[in-house]
Design a protein around this nucleic acid. Structure first.
Lengths: 182, 182
DNA sequence: GCTATATATATCCAGATGATATATATCGGG
DNA sequence: CCCGATATATATCATCTGGATATATATAGC
Protein backbone atom coordinates (compact mmCIF):
# COMPACT_ATOMS: atom_id res chain seq x y z
CA UNK A 1 0.00 0.00 0.00
CA UNK A 2 2.22 2.70 -1.33
CA UNK A 3 -0.26 5.50 -1.98
CA UNK A 4 -1.05 5.49 1.71
CA UNK A 5 2.61 5.84 2.65
CA UNK A 6 3.06 8.62 0.14
CA UNK A 7 0.04 10.59 1.40
CA UNK A 8 1.29 10.27 4.95
CA UNK A 9 4.75 11.44 3.86
CA UNK A 10 3.27 14.60 2.36
CA UNK A 11 1.09 15.20 5.39
CA UNK A 12 4.10 14.75 7.69
CA UNK A 13 5.31 18.11 6.37
CA UNK A 14 2.01 19.83 7.11
CA UNK A 15 -1.59 19.85 6.02
CA UNK A 16 -2.64 19.43 2.40
CA UNK A 17 -5.64 18.83 0.15
CA UNK A 18 -5.98 15.81 -2.10
CA UNK A 19 -5.29 18.07 -5.03
CA UNK A 20 -2.03 19.28 -3.51
CA UNK A 21 -0.95 15.71 -2.74
CA UNK A 22 -1.43 14.77 -6.35
CA UNK A 23 0.54 17.80 -7.47
CA UNK A 24 3.38 16.61 -5.24
CA UNK A 25 3.23 13.27 -7.04
CA UNK A 26 3.49 15.03 -10.39
CA UNK A 27 5.88 17.92 -9.81
CA UNK A 28 7.83 17.86 -6.59
CA UNK A 29 10.77 15.80 -5.41
CA UNK A 30 8.47 12.86 -4.90
CA UNK A 31 7.47 12.85 -8.55
CA UNK A 32 10.73 11.15 -9.57
CA UNK A 33 9.88 7.92 -7.83
CA UNK A 34 6.16 8.03 -7.02
CA UNK A 35 3.13 7.44 -9.21
CA UNK A 36 -0.29 8.40 -7.87
CA UNK A 37 -3.45 9.77 -9.44
CA UNK A 38 -6.76 10.99 -8.02
CA UNK A 39 -8.19 7.53 -8.35
CA UNK A 40 -5.81 6.25 -5.68
CA UNK A 41 -5.30 9.37 -3.55
CA UNK A 42 -8.93 10.24 -2.77
CA UNK A 43 -9.97 6.71 -1.78
CA UNK A 44 -6.80 6.39 0.27
CA UNK A 45 -7.46 9.62 2.18
CA UNK A 46 -11.08 8.62 2.79
CA UNK A 47 -10.01 5.28 4.20
CA UNK A 48 -7.34 6.75 6.42
CA UNK A 49 -9.86 9.28 7.69
CA UNK A 50 -12.13 6.40 8.72
CA UNK A 51 -9.21 4.72 10.45
CA UNK A 52 -8.34 7.89 12.33
CA UNK A 53 -4.92 8.37 10.75
CA UNK A 54 -5.87 11.71 9.24
CA UNK A 55 -8.54 14.36 9.88
CA UNK A 56 -9.82 17.14 7.66
CA UNK A 57 -11.47 20.49 8.11
CA UNK A 58 -13.66 21.66 5.32
CA UNK A 59 -13.12 25.16 4.03
CA UNK A 60 -16.23 26.37 2.28
CA UNK A 61 -15.44 29.89 1.13
CA UNK A 62 -18.21 31.59 -0.75
CA UNK A 63 -18.37 30.36 -4.29
CA UNK A 64 -14.96 28.70 -4.33
CA UNK A 65 -14.81 24.94 -4.65
CA UNK A 66 -14.78 23.56 -1.11
CA UNK A 67 -11.45 22.26 0.10
CA UNK A 68 -10.90 19.33 2.41
CA UNK A 69 -7.69 20.20 4.18
CA UNK A 70 -6.20 17.04 5.60
CA UNK A 71 -3.75 16.74 8.45
CA UNK A 72 -2.11 13.89 10.30
CA UNK A 73 -3.21 12.66 13.70
CA UNK A 74 -0.70 11.23 16.21
CA UNK A 75 -1.98 7.78 15.21
CA UNK A 76 -1.26 8.73 11.61
CA UNK A 77 2.27 9.75 12.45
CA UNK A 78 3.07 6.48 14.17
CA UNK A 79 1.41 4.53 11.35
CA UNK A 80 3.65 6.44 8.95
CA UNK A 81 6.83 5.57 10.84
CA UNK A 82 5.66 1.99 11.12
CA UNK A 83 5.05 1.76 7.38
CA UNK A 84 8.46 3.30 6.68
CA UNK A 85 10.03 0.66 8.91
CA UNK A 86 8.30 -2.19 7.18
CA UNK A 87 11.07 -3.53 5.03
CA UNK A 88 10.50 -1.49 1.92
CA UNK A 89 9.39 -3.41 -1.11
CA UNK A 90 11.83 -3.60 -3.98
CA UNK A 91 11.97 -0.79 -6.45
CA UNK A 92 9.70 -1.20 -9.43
CA UNK A 93 11.18 -0.50 -12.82
CA UNK A 94 9.17 -1.00 -15.95
CA UNK A 95 10.57 0.10 -19.26
CA UNK A 96 8.69 0.04 -22.54
CA UNK A 97 11.84 1.54 -24.03
CA UNK A 98 13.98 -1.47 -23.16
CA UNK A 99 11.25 -3.78 -24.44
CA UNK A 100 11.56 -1.89 -27.71
CA UNK A 101 15.37 -2.01 -27.61
CA UNK A 102 15.34 -5.76 -27.11
CA UNK A 103 13.03 -6.12 -30.11
CA UNK A 104 14.49 -3.36 -32.23
CA UNK A 105 15.10 -5.82 -35.06
CA UNK A 106 11.40 -5.54 -35.98
CA UNK A 107 11.02 -1.80 -36.23
CA UNK A 108 13.87 -0.47 -38.33
CA UNK A 109 16.72 1.90 -37.52
CA UNK A 110 14.88 5.12 -38.36
CA UNK A 111 12.26 4.48 -35.78
CA UNK A 112 14.88 3.49 -33.19
CA UNK A 113 16.88 6.66 -33.90
CA UNK A 114 13.82 8.80 -33.39
CA UNK A 115 12.98 7.04 -30.13
CA UNK A 116 16.52 7.39 -28.82
CA UNK A 117 16.41 11.10 -29.65
CA UNK A 118 13.19 11.43 -27.71
CA UNK A 119 14.63 9.55 -24.80
CA UNK A 120 17.86 11.54 -24.67
CA UNK A 121 15.90 14.75 -24.70
CA UNK A 122 13.59 13.53 -22.01
CA UNK A 123 16.48 12.44 -19.79
CA UNK A 124 18.24 15.77 -20.27
CA UNK A 125 15.10 17.61 -19.25
CA UNK A 126 14.62 15.46 -16.18
CA UNK A 127 18.23 15.91 -15.10
CA UNK A 128 18.00 19.65 -15.65
CA UNK A 129 14.82 19.78 -13.58
CA UNK A 130 16.48 17.88 -10.77
CA UNK A 131 19.54 20.16 -10.84
CA UNK A 132 17.17 23.09 -10.52
CA UNK A 133 15.35 21.54 -7.59
CA UNK A 134 18.71 20.81 -5.99
CA UNK A 135 19.70 24.46 -6.10
CA UNK A 136 16.48 25.55 -4.41
CA UNK A 137 16.46 22.80 -1.82
CA UNK A 138 17.70 23.23 1.71
CA UNK A 139 16.77 19.87 3.23
CA UNK A 140 19.79 17.50 3.23
CA UNK A 141 17.67 14.36 2.69
CA UNK A 142 16.11 15.99 -0.37
CA UNK A 143 19.54 16.87 -1.68
CA UNK A 144 20.75 13.30 -1.17
CA UNK A 145 17.76 11.89 -3.01
CA UNK A 146 18.01 14.37 -5.87
CA UNK A 147 21.71 13.64 -6.31
CA UNK A 148 20.87 9.95 -6.42
CA UNK A 149 18.46 10.63 -9.24
CA UNK A 150 20.86 12.88 -11.12
CA UNK A 151 23.62 10.28 -10.86
CA UNK A 152 21.57 7.37 -12.18
CA UNK A 153 19.86 9.33 -14.94
CA UNK A 154 23.20 10.76 -16.04
CA UNK A 155 24.65 7.25 -16.26
CA UNK A 156 21.64 6.22 -18.32
CA UNK A 157 22.00 9.19 -20.64
CA UNK A 158 25.71 8.69 -21.02
CA UNK A 159 25.28 5.01 -21.92
CA UNK A 160 22.68 5.99 -24.48
CA UNK A 161 24.89 8.60 -26.14
CA UNK A 162 27.90 6.29 -26.25
CA UNK A 163 26.12 3.15 -27.45
CA UNK A 164 23.17 4.32 -29.51
CA UNK A 165 24.95 3.60 -32.78
CA UNK A 166 25.20 -0.08 -31.88
CA UNK A 167 21.46 -0.33 -31.41
CA UNK A 168 20.80 1.63 -34.59
CA UNK A 169 22.99 -0.83 -36.43
CA UNK A 170 21.13 -3.81 -35.01
CA UNK A 171 17.85 -2.26 -36.11
CA UNK A 172 19.40 -1.63 -39.52
CA UNK A 173 20.22 -5.27 -40.21
CA UNK A 174 16.66 -6.13 -39.50
CA UNK A 175 13.53 -7.85 -40.67
CA UNK A 176 11.90 -4.56 -41.56
CA UNK A 177 12.07 -5.11 -45.32
CA UNK A 178 10.14 -8.34 -44.88
CA UNK A 179 7.52 -6.52 -42.89
CA UNK A 180 7.40 -3.66 -45.35
CA UNK A 181 6.61 -6.21 -48.05
CA UNK A 182 3.59 -7.50 -46.17
CA UNK B 1 -1.55 -2.57 -22.21
CA UNK B 2 1.96 -3.71 -21.53
CA UNK B 3 1.33 -7.33 -20.58
CA UNK B 4 0.01 -7.88 -24.08
CA UNK B 5 3.14 -6.44 -25.66
CA UNK B 6 5.31 -8.53 -23.39
CA UNK B 7 3.46 -11.78 -24.19
CA UNK B 8 3.76 -11.06 -27.89
CA UNK B 9 7.47 -10.35 -27.46
CA UNK B 10 8.01 -13.76 -25.87
CA UNK B 11 5.89 -15.48 -28.50
CA UNK B 12 7.85 -13.74 -31.27
CA UNK B 13 10.76 -16.02 -30.33
CA UNK B 14 8.61 -19.16 -30.56
CA UNK B 15 5.74 -20.88 -28.85
CA UNK B 16 5.28 -20.85 -25.09
CA UNK B 17 2.82 -21.68 -22.33
CA UNK B 18 1.45 -19.09 -19.91
CA UNK B 19 3.64 -20.60 -17.25
CA UNK B 20 6.75 -20.13 -19.37
CA UNK B 21 5.82 -16.54 -20.18
CA UNK B 22 5.57 -15.78 -16.50
CA UNK B 23 8.93 -17.41 -15.87
CA UNK B 24 10.40 -15.12 -18.52
CA UNK B 25 8.98 -12.18 -16.57
CA UNK B 26 10.62 -13.42 -13.41
CA UNK B 27 13.96 -14.81 -14.51
CA UNK B 28 15.05 -14.00 -18.04
CA UNK B 29 16.38 -10.84 -19.62
CA UNK B 30 12.91 -9.39 -19.58
CA UNK B 31 12.68 -9.69 -15.81
CA UNK B 32 14.81 -6.58 -15.32
CA UNK B 33 12.22 -4.24 -16.74
CA UNK B 34 8.94 -6.18 -16.87
CA UNK B 35 6.41 -7.03 -14.18
CA UNK B 36 3.71 -9.57 -14.95
CA UNK B 37 1.97 -12.24 -12.91
CA UNK B 38 -0.54 -14.96 -13.76
CA UNK B 39 -3.38 -12.58 -13.03
CA UNK B 40 -2.43 -10.48 -16.03
CA UNK B 41 -0.85 -13.06 -18.33
CA UNK B 42 -3.66 -15.63 -18.51
CA UNK B 43 -6.46 -13.11 -19.16
CA UNK B 44 -4.23 -11.38 -21.70
CA UNK B 45 -3.58 -14.63 -23.60
CA UNK B 46 -7.27 -15.53 -23.52
CA UNK B 47 -8.22 -12.15 -24.94
CA UNK B 48 -5.60 -12.26 -27.66
CA UNK B 49 -6.76 -15.73 -28.59
CA UNK B 50 -10.30 -14.39 -29.06
CA UNK B 51 -8.90 -11.59 -31.21
CA UNK B 52 -6.95 -14.03 -33.36
CA UNK B 53 -3.50 -12.71 -32.43
CA UNK B 54 -2.44 -16.02 -30.93
CA UNK B 55 -3.55 -19.65 -31.18
CA UNK B 56 -2.90 -22.57 -28.91
CA UNK B 57 -2.78 -26.33 -29.22
CA UNK B 58 -3.62 -28.29 -26.12
CA UNK B 59 -1.24 -31.02 -25.09
CA UNK B 60 -3.02 -33.48 -22.84
CA UNK B 61 -0.47 -36.12 -21.94
CA UNK B 62 -1.72 -38.85 -19.67
CA UNK B 63 -1.81 -37.64 -16.11
CA UNK B 64 0.31 -34.54 -16.62
CA UNK B 65 -1.31 -31.17 -16.21
CA UNK B 66 -2.53 -30.15 -19.64
CA UNK B 67 -0.52 -27.48 -21.40
CA UNK B 68 -1.84 -24.76 -23.64
CA UNK B 69 1.01 -24.04 -25.98
CA UNK B 70 0.50 -20.64 -27.51
CA UNK B 71 1.97 -19.33 -30.71
CA UNK B 72 1.66 -16.14 -32.71
CA UNK B 73 -0.48 -15.75 -35.81
CA UNK B 74 0.54 -13.41 -38.66
CA UNK B 75 -2.06 -10.97 -37.30
CA UNK B 76 -0.35 -11.28 -33.93
CA UNK B 77 3.01 -10.48 -35.42
CA UNK B 78 1.81 -7.34 -37.12
CA UNK B 79 -0.06 -6.31 -33.95
CA UNK B 80 3.21 -6.76 -32.08
CA UNK B 81 5.19 -4.56 -34.44
CA UNK B 82 2.39 -2.01 -34.36
CA UNK B 83 2.41 -1.92 -30.57
CA UNK B 84 6.19 -1.58 -30.55
CA UNK B 85 5.87 1.38 -32.90
CA UNK B 86 3.30 3.11 -30.79
CA UNK B 87 5.43 5.72 -29.09
CA UNK B 88 6.46 3.82 -26.02
CA UNK B 89 5.11 5.10 -22.76
CA UNK B 90 7.61 6.60 -20.34
CA UNK B 91 9.54 4.31 -18.08
CA UNK B 92 7.92 3.71 -14.74
CA UNK B 93 10.11 3.95 -11.70
CA UNK B 94 8.70 3.55 -8.23
CA UNK B 95 11.03 3.44 -5.27
CA UNK B 96 9.96 2.71 -1.70
CA UNK B 97 13.65 3.01 -0.86
CA UNK B 98 13.87 6.64 -1.96
CA UNK B 99 10.64 7.39 -0.11
CA UNK B 100 12.39 6.03 2.96
CA UNK B 101 15.58 7.98 2.21
CA UNK B 102 13.65 11.21 1.90
CA UNK B 103 12.03 10.53 5.26
CA UNK B 104 15.00 8.95 6.97
CA UNK B 105 14.82 11.50 9.76
CA UNK B 106 11.95 9.51 11.30
CA UNK B 107 13.48 6.07 11.43
CA UNK B 108 16.96 6.39 12.96
CA UNK B 109 20.39 5.67 11.54
CA UNK B 110 20.54 1.99 12.54
CA UNK B 111 17.51 1.18 10.48
CA UNK B 112 18.82 3.18 7.54
CA UNK B 113 22.19 1.42 7.72
CA UNK B 114 20.53 -1.95 7.64
CA UNK B 115 18.36 -0.97 4.69
CA UNK B 116 21.34 0.38 2.74
CA UNK B 117 23.19 -2.87 3.41
CA UNK B 118 20.24 -4.81 2.05
CA UNK B 119 20.05 -2.60 -0.98
CA UNK B 120 23.76 -2.78 -1.75
CA UNK B 121 23.64 -6.54 -1.52
CA UNK B 122 20.59 -6.70 -3.72
CA UNK B 123 22.16 -4.46 -6.35
CA UNK B 124 25.36 -6.50 -6.34
CA UNK B 125 23.38 -9.67 -6.88
CA UNK B 126 21.38 -8.16 -9.71
CA UNK B 127 24.51 -6.85 -11.42
CA UNK B 128 26.22 -10.21 -11.01
CA UNK B 129 23.20 -11.95 -12.49
CA UNK B 130 23.21 -9.62 -15.47
CA UNK B 131 26.95 -10.13 -16.04
CA UNK B 132 26.28 -13.85 -16.08
CA UNK B 133 23.45 -13.51 -18.56
CA UNK B 134 25.69 -11.32 -20.69
CA UNK B 135 28.34 -14.03 -20.92
CA UNK B 136 25.81 -16.60 -22.06
CA UNK B 137 24.01 -14.34 -24.49
CA UNK B 138 24.65 -14.28 -28.20
CA UNK B 139 21.97 -11.87 -29.37
CA UNK B 140 23.42 -8.34 -29.80
CA UNK B 141 20.18 -6.60 -28.75
CA UNK B 142 20.16 -8.64 -25.53
CA UNK B 143 23.76 -7.68 -24.88
CA UNK B 144 22.96 -4.00 -25.44
CA UNK B 145 20.04 -4.13 -23.05
CA UNK B 146 21.95 -6.05 -20.40
CA UNK B 147 24.84 -3.58 -20.56
CA UNK B 148 22.37 -0.76 -20.16
CA UNK B 149 21.13 -2.40 -16.98
CA UNK B 150 24.61 -3.11 -15.66
CA UNK B 151 25.65 0.48 -16.28
CA UNK B 152 22.73 2.09 -14.49
CA UNK B 153 22.69 -0.33 -11.57
CA UNK B 154 26.44 0.11 -11.14
CA UNK B 155 26.02 3.87 -11.01
CA UNK B 156 23.31 3.41 -8.43
CA UNK B 157 25.47 1.09 -6.33
CA UNK B 158 28.47 3.35 -6.58
CA UNK B 159 26.47 6.39 -5.44
CA UNK B 160 25.17 4.40 -2.53
CA UNK B 161 28.63 3.25 -1.41
CA UNK B 162 30.10 6.74 -1.70
CA UNK B 163 27.26 8.66 -0.08
CA UNK B 164 25.67 6.31 2.40
CA UNK B 165 27.43 7.96 5.34
CA UNK B 166 25.69 11.26 4.59
CA UNK B 167 22.30 9.63 4.79
CA UNK B 168 23.21 7.75 7.94
CA UNK B 169 24.25 11.04 9.49
CA UNK B 170 20.94 12.68 8.56
CA UNK B 171 19.09 9.79 10.14
CA UNK B 172 21.32 10.14 13.21
CA UNK B 173 20.39 13.74 13.89
CA UNK B 174 16.80 12.75 13.84
CA UNK B 175 13.49 12.77 15.60
CA UNK B 176 13.86 9.16 16.62
CA UNK B 177 14.41 9.92 20.34
CA UNK B 178 11.12 11.81 20.38
CA UNK B 179 9.38 8.85 18.82
CA UNK B 180 11.11 6.41 21.13
CA UNK B 181 9.67 8.41 24.03
CA UNK B 182 6.12 7.96 22.78
C1' DG C 1 8.31 -43.76 0.89
C1' DC C 2 7.66 -39.05 1.90
C1' DT C 3 8.33 -34.31 1.38
C1' DA C 4 9.59 -30.40 -1.21
C1' DT C 5 9.86 -28.37 -5.47
C1' DA C 6 8.70 -27.65 -10.33
C1' DT C 7 5.24 -27.63 -13.89
C1' DA C 8 0.78 -25.95 -15.26
C1' DT C 9 -3.84 -23.54 -15.33
C1' DA C 10 -7.15 -20.68 -13.33
C1' DT C 11 -9.67 -17.42 -10.38
C1' DC C 12 -10.53 -13.93 -6.73
C1' DC C 13 -10.51 -9.50 -4.40
C1' DA C 14 -8.43 -5.41 -3.27
C1' DG C 15 -6.36 -1.76 -5.16
C1' DA C 16 -4.44 1.11 -9.03
C1' DT C 17 -4.96 3.44 -13.55
C1' DG C 18 -6.51 6.79 -16.60
C1' DA C 19 -10.30 9.03 -18.19
C1' DT C 20 -14.00 11.79 -17.41
C1' DA C 21 -17.59 14.85 -15.06
C1' DT C 22 -18.48 18.89 -12.37
C1' DA C 23 -17.69 23.57 -10.69
C1' DT C 24 -15.44 27.88 -9.93
C1' DA C 25 -11.51 31.35 -10.13
C1' DT C 26 -8.17 33.69 -12.45
C1' DC C 27 -5.42 35.64 -15.95
C1' DG C 28 -4.09 37.23 -20.40
C1' DG C 29 -5.29 38.59 -25.17
C1' DG C 30 -8.27 40.50 -28.42
C1' DC D 1 -14.82 43.75 -21.03
C1' DC D 2 -15.60 39.26 -22.37
C1' DC D 3 -13.84 34.81 -24.04
C1' DG D 4 -11.10 30.94 -23.68
C1' DA D 5 -7.42 28.62 -21.46
C1' DT D 6 -5.56 27.21 -17.39
C1' DA D 7 -5.52 26.27 -12.43
C1' DT D 8 -7.93 24.77 -8.32
C1' DA D 9 -10.69 21.21 -6.30
C1' DT D 10 -13.45 16.85 -5.58
C1' DA D 11 -15.25 12.64 -7.14
C1' DT D 12 -16.45 8.45 -9.75
C1' DC D 13 -16.25 4.76 -13.29
C1' DA D 14 -14.74 0.87 -16.04
C1' DT D 15 -11.00 -1.66 -16.71
C1' DC D 16 -6.68 -3.64 -15.63
C1' DT D 17 -3.19 -5.30 -12.42
C1' DG D 18 -1.11 -7.73 -8.36
C1' DG D 19 -0.63 -11.04 -5.13
C1' DA D 20 -2.58 -14.71 -3.11
C1' DT D 21 -4.71 -18.92 -3.36
C1' DA D 22 -6.72 -23.43 -5.16
C1' DT D 23 -5.95 -27.52 -7.78
C1' DA D 24 -3.32 -31.30 -9.80
C1' DT D 25 0.61 -34.11 -11.09
C1' DA D 26 5.67 -35.27 -11.87
C1' DT D 27 10.13 -35.32 -10.27
C1' DA D 28 14.10 -35.09 -7.35
C1' DG D 29 16.21 -35.59 -3.04
C1' DC D 30 16.49 -37.40 1.52
Amino acid sequence: MSTRKFCLAILSNGEATGYEIRKAAQEGQYSHFIEAGYGSIYPSLAKMEQEGLVVFREETSVGKPSRKIYSMTPAGRSAFVQELKETPVEDLFRSPFLLLALNSQWVGSDFISKEIDRREEHLEQKIEGMRHQLELCCNPASAWTLEYGITTLSASLSYLKTNRSKLEQIAGECHAPVLAAE
